[in-house]
Design a protein around this nucleic acid. Structure first.
Lengths: 155, 155
DNA sequence: TTGCGTGCAAAGGTTTTGCATGGCA
DNA sequence: TGCCATGCAAAACCTTTGCACGCAA
C-alpha cells in the first residue's frame, strides 16, 4: 500500500518542533533534546525526516554559522514566501520580518535589475539587537545559545 | 624577519583570480583549473590562501549551493560593504547591486527592527534574468555553468 | 640562516547511504 | 503479509591541521 506511516519517531519530532516553533536547531541539537526527554530518535531518522519536512515546507532549512545546517519549524499559517528573514551571524537566531519595504524591494529588484527575489531563501545577515549590546559590553562567547526568536511586524 | 613571502603558488592563484574577476569558484575548481594550465597548487595551500584573501577582503567567500564554499575575486576598487549581492540559485552566479534602495533598507532595518545589516555577508537569493528565461523555455540542467557575471548599478 | 609557505596525509566534522531489522497498516 | 521506517555503522564529503621539507628574503 502506498503512503507514509505514522511512527513514534515522527510524532516525537513533530511534537518537539511544534513546541519550539520559530526556534533554530541543528540536527544534533534536536536529537539531543529529544534524548533528554526520553524520546530518542536516531540521527539518520532525524536527518531524513527533517529533510522531508523541509521539502514539504513546514520546516525551514538553512545554512547557519560554520556551515551547519539549521532547521526551524514554521507555523502552518506562516507564508514565508511573503516576508524576509534576518539571520544573526553571532547567535544564529533567525527572525521573520513582515515589512512593507520588503515588497517594494522585491518589486524594485525585479523591475530594475531583472532578478526575481526568493524571499523564502533570502537571508538578511547581520547582528541582532541582543548581540550588538553584548558586543558593546564584554566579550561574546562563541555560541550565544539564545535561541528564542521573534517576529518583527513593521509599522 | 616579519612579513609575507611571495611564492609561485600565491602568484598563480592571484593571477587566476584577477583573470576571472567576479566569477565564482569552489576551492576544488580553482585547484583543477590551475592544474589544467600546468600551474598546480596544493589543495591545502588553496584553502589557506583563499581564506587569507577573504579575510583581507580582496576575495568574497560565501556558502553556495550544497553547502560548498564559494570564492569570488573582487576588484580592488570594489567596496563590497557598500552594496548588496544577488545570488542566482540556479546557476550560482553572484551579482553586485549598487542601488540607493539598499542603503534605505539598511537604515530602515536598523531603525525599525534593531538589526544591523552586514551587506558583505547578505545574499539576495533568487533567479537571474537568464535562468528565468531558460525556465520559461525548456528544462534547466542542474549546473548551468554560466559563471560570467555582472554588475547592476541602479539609476 | 631564519622562518614562512607548501603539500601530503591524517584527522575532524557534518551529512548521506547500505542494509538488516522492526513496526505500521 | 507487504512495505515503509528505523538505526547502526560505514562511507562520502568538505575542510582543517600536523609535520617535515622547501624556498624566499
Amino acid at each position: 500500500m502506498r503512503g507514509e506511516y505514522s511512527t513514534r519517531q515522527k510524532r516525537e519530532l513533530l511534537k518537539f518542533l511544534k513546541e519550539h516553533e520559530l526556534e533554530n536547531f541543528s540536527v544534533d541539537e534536536v536529537v539531543l533534546r529529544l534524548r533528554e526527554r526520553g524520546a530518542s530518535v536516531g540521527r539518520s531518522t532525524a536527518y531524513r525526516y527533517l529533510e522531508a519536512l523541509a521539502e514539504q515546507g513546514s520546516v525551514r532549512k538553512y545554512a547557519g554559522a560554520q556551515g551547519i545546517t539549521q532547521y526551524q519549524s514554521v507555523s502552518d499559517s506562516d507564508d514565508c514566501s511573503r516576508h524576509f528573514h534576518m539571520l544573526c551571524k553571532r547567535c544564529g537566531t533567525l527572525m521573520h520580518v513582515d515589512c512593507g519595504l520588503m515588497e517594494s524591494l522585491s518589486r524594485h529588484i525585479a523591475e530594475h535589475h531583472g532578478f526575481q527575489l526568493d524571499a523564502r531563501e533570502t537571508m538578511l545577515v547581520g547582528v541582532c539587537e541582543k548581540c550588538a549590546q553584548k558586543d558593546a559590553g564584554g566579550e561574546v562567547d562563541g555560541d550565544g545559545a539564545d535561541r528564542t526568536e521573534g517576529r518583527h511586524d513593521c509599522v
